[in-house]
Design a protein around this nucleic acid. Structure first.
Lengths: 251, 251
DNA sequence: CATGTCTCTCTCAATCTGAGAACATCTCGA
DNA sequence: TCGAGATGTTCTCAGATTGAGAGAGACATG
């Protein structure tokens, strides 16, 4: 069971064939009531012209999450203050031996939830980064195994909204219950009952807290001014805000 | 933002400083109504004499999960057939720059649920592997950041029992509802109401299916023979089997 | 064979959810 | 300026789910 390489590596990991480690980020935001993610069109082979997640090699002195935060900052043009409202978590690692034709590359994928951000400045990095609606993904060619990473990320995002208050990270610091509901409807992909959602959000301890203020105007198409809330101090929703039953996905 | 190394790596990842990638496995099982995990006492520095998770370097031709499965097989002595009943999933990656004093090592941690297995054969691998009760962890010195990995794994395990039927992976192919309840009580660390648990398990579609048979004898301390079930075809529990409220952990 | 344990079912109250409705407030176009 | 329509918020009510307790019957042990 113990081969020569393992034996050497036990004393000195440098004796083992090297692997490159990258961090990739699935950055999600909501624009015009549609879920968007940040993609970059590749300028060189492999997969030249295909779309890829923002990412790059981990630097020697930085932690994995720090690398992801750096990549996100580079591609969005966001500074330290702006990044603070962005949620970033590790999604998982992807390391199939043939996922990069050049050499063995293990990618540590991350997932980010961001409020609506301006379009990336074209000159901030060498490549062209854009916010693409997830519904437009099928028409784009994706590089490497990024299609699978994105699928996993979207499912994680849907799931996270159920038991964490992270939906608020898609919104400004102050928001209305209806705006929060729109986040859920966009990420989950189906409408929710306004009254029941309202009741549920206010009943979960620490989900949101009232600012006391209201919006300046009513809704664009009518309706009264809405009360404003900010994110509460809960890290988990209890009881959770569950998606309606989805029998198909269960088996 | 684009430094020399990034620039080179864009064309050839080999130009980038190398990182070692390992897979580690937090293998959990239940013995004598106590949660145990597989640990190995290290025979060489660094952390000589400390306890570590089974793991090792990823081989060039194997996927991450395949590497974890191989490590698990080596340390448990389990063959292909035995491994099939073991649940294995990726937990997350740990890559703090200083987590291994020798060089930059990124570890892709995995989580395994196994039925009660025999003690590892002493000669199956160079190191001494044992099943240690998780309650005894505080008295052992753990190598690297394996303490944190184990903490994360235990929390993941507790959470997984809520919304997946994976508790059955701790049991033999056929089991009683009481044995299943014992798994939950062991992993969650507190007793459950027998009647309500029974009702819930049978009401969740696809969680368990009846074999029609019953145990040969009653319980060791009395009681009727119990009906036997096997795992159903559900991959998710819907509605979930939630832990009782835990206000403390929420904020 | 008496005692205590355990499986399994049942009841009841409390809570939560889904669906619908009521009502006041506001925007917009006629 | 006014009416129509949309929206925010609160209620009601029925159905489902959960927590707690109780009880009938089967079984091991001494």
């Amino acid at each position: 069971m113990v081969d020569e390489q393992d034996f050497l590596a036990a004393y000195d990991p440098r004796a083992y064939p090297s692997v490159a480690v990258t961090v990739d980020v699935v950055a999600l935001t909501i624009r015009d009531d549609a879920l968007h993610l940040l993609l970059i069109q590749r300028g060189q082979p492999p997969f030249e012209g295909h779309w890829a997640l923002p990412g790059g090699f981990v630097r020697p002195e930085e932690d994995l999450t720090a690398g992801a935060r750096r990549e996100l900052a580079e591609e969005t043009g966001l500074g330290g203050a702006g990044l603070r409202r962005v949620h970033l978590e590790q999604l998982g690692s992807y390391g199939a031996p043939d996922r990069d034709p050049r050499m063995r590359v293990v990618s540590v994928a991350h997932l980010a939830f961001a409020p609506d951000l301006p379009d990336p400045a074209a000159g901030s990095d060498a490549d062209e980064a854009i916010w693409l609606p997830v519904t437009a993904l099928t028409s784009r060619q994706l590089a490497f195994d990024h299609g699978r990473i994105i699928d996993d990320a979207l499912e994680r995002a849907r799931s996270k909204l159920e038991y964490t208050p992270l939906a608020t990270r898609f919104l400004a610091a102050e928001f209305t219950i209806s705006e929060l509901r729109a986040v859920y409807e966009t990420v989950w992909g189906h409408p929710l009952h306004a009254g029941n959602f309202h009741r549920k959000v206010l009943s979960v301890p620490g989900f949101v807290e009232s600012t006391g203020a209201s919006t300046e105007r009513g809704g664009a198409r009518g309706g009264p001014r809405a009360r404003l809330y900010r994110a509460g101090d809960a890290r988990l929703l209890h009881p959770a805000l569950l998606r309606p039953a989805r029998e198909e996905t269960v088996r």
